[in-house]
Amino acid sequence: MPTPPRPAWPKTLISAIPVLLVGLTAVLLPQAASAQSSTALAVSHKSPFNCGKTFYANNWTGTPAHNPSGSIDWQDYGSDDINGETVRATAAGTAYFYNAGSTSYGQWVEIRHSDGTRTRYAHLASMVKSAGSSMSVSQGTVIGTVGSTGGSNAPHLHYEQRTSGGAMDTSPTVEGVTVSLGQKKAITSTNSCGGSGNPHTPEEVCGSGYSVIDSAALTGGRVYLLYNSGNGYNCVATLKTTNLSSSTSMSAFLEPQGSSRTTDSGSYQYYAGPVKRSASGQCVKWGGSIGSSAYTSGFEHCG
């Protein structure tokens, strides 16, 4: 039986092929460009501590056994005791808060950055959000304090830089200093040092014994709730991150449940507050404002 002839393509379809190819190229090229740009988004990291603080960055080679090779254990340097130190985001991203209890990382935070990489901060004594929470952070945003929770033998900050694929970067770089396996280097923080960053911290504003237990973002800054377990007082402070050279209308307030509200408001360059109230065993409502941007919590953090 003879093979039937193949149908000829219409001339209109043949003439359309170059146009189709051009259109396909136009679709594919932006995707390729996007892929290239996404790989060029590598973020740079500052030290996770307050401006001017110097601590040892120790990149262990697998000992002690609980410490993965390539991670950094931040430890005391000279007369500076790291225990209780403020921990800040080394780069911007979204922070996720976890609690492994008395094992592994203990209380810890993972920040996922714009280029897909991640940093981890473990063995924290306190976190600014409860486990299971998340929040957007800028470079320098306070996320917790140094402690010794989980599988830790002494107060220190366990810090990791991980690739977008989840693998450990065994030669992490902070403040432009690379700490390779087996190395121990003293690194001084420039995190939140002037410029667009506020030189003050919420702990400094509220005073000795206060630790951040919650915070909320405002346009141009952040409002913080702190607690002093020694005297049962809460403290609220609102800190700016922009327009530090000019005074801005700001406020901070604190209201223990069943009591009147105390507010500090005015035109400030750096912060509003501190507002301190005895609140042991009480729920509190807290918040603040920068310009027209304001935050008010519900009654929470009871006890």
Rank of each mutant, 00 (worst) to 15 (best):
residue 3 T to R: 11
residue 12 T to H: 04
residue 20 L to T: 09
residue 33 A to E: 11
residue 39 T to A: 09
residue 44 S to H: 04
residue 44 S to G: 04
residue 50 N to Y: 01
residue 56 Y to E: 06
residue 58 N to I: 06
residue 65 A to M: 01
residue 65 A to P: 01
residue 65 A to E: 07
residue 67 N to A: 06
residue 79 S to W: 08
residue 85 E to I: 00
residue 88 R to G: 00
residue 97 F to W: 09
residue 97 F to E: 07
residue 102 S to R: 08
residue 107 Q to V: 01
residue 116 G to R: 09
residue 125 A to T: 02
residue 129 K to F: 12
residue 133 S to N: 15
residue 134 S to K: 15
residue 135 M to P: 02
residue 137 V to G: 03
residue 138 S to N: 13
residue 140 G to I: 02
residue 145 T to K: 09
residue 147 G to Q: 12
residue 148 S to W: 00
residue 152 S to F: 01
residue 169 D to E: 15
residue 184 K to W: 00
residue 186 A to L: 09
residue 188 T to D: 05
residue 190 T to I: 02
residue 194 G to W: 12
residue 207 G to Y: 09
residue 214 D to A: 15
residue 216 A to E: 14
residue 220 G to H: 01
residue 221 G to K: 06
residue 223 V to I: 06
residue 231 N to Y: 08
residue 235 C to L: 12
residue 247 S to D: 12
residue 249 S to Q: 13
residue 253 F to W: 13
residue 255 E to Q: 15
residue 258 G to Q: 07
residue 259 S to G: 09
residue 265 S to D: 09
residue 266 G to C: 10
residue 267 S to K: 11
residue 268 Y to A: 00
residue 269 Q to P: 00
residue 270 Y to L: 14
residue 273 G to D: 04
residue 278 S to K: 10
residue 287 G to V: 08
residue 290 I to T: 02
residue 291 G to S: 05
residue 298 G to L: 01
